[in-house]
């Protein structure tokens, strides 16, 4: 699991491996909530999107073993 932007500052880490991989995004978020409620709240914040294997996830996406999940706060380039 990867965190970007301010989410990384909230968590204090950038990358973490979850074994076994939860079956769905919602299960991953539940695991995070029990470990770090502040990070779980930040993941539910406005404009935060999730990507699974570098594709934007819609709804409660299924996760496969080895899936790469990234949480993306609102983006700002240029």
């Amino acid at each position: 699991m990867l965190l970007f932007g301010r989410l990384r500052d909230v968590a204090g880490w950038r990358e973490r491996v979850f074994e076994p991989v939860p079956a769905r995004l919602s299960a991953l978020k539940a695991m995070i909530r029990s470990a770090d409620p502040a990070l779980a709240d930040a993941l539910e914040g406005p404009g935060v999107q999730a990507a699974v294997d570098k594709v934007l996830a819609r709804g409660d996406a299924a996760l496969h073993p080895g899936a790469e999940v990234a949480f993306l706060p609102p983006m700002s380039g240029g």
Partner: peptide
């Protein structure tokens, strides 16, 4: 690019 491209700016 300013609001939809995957960049995070500090």
């Amino acid at each position: 690019l300013k609001s939809r491209a995957p960049f995070w700016k500090k």
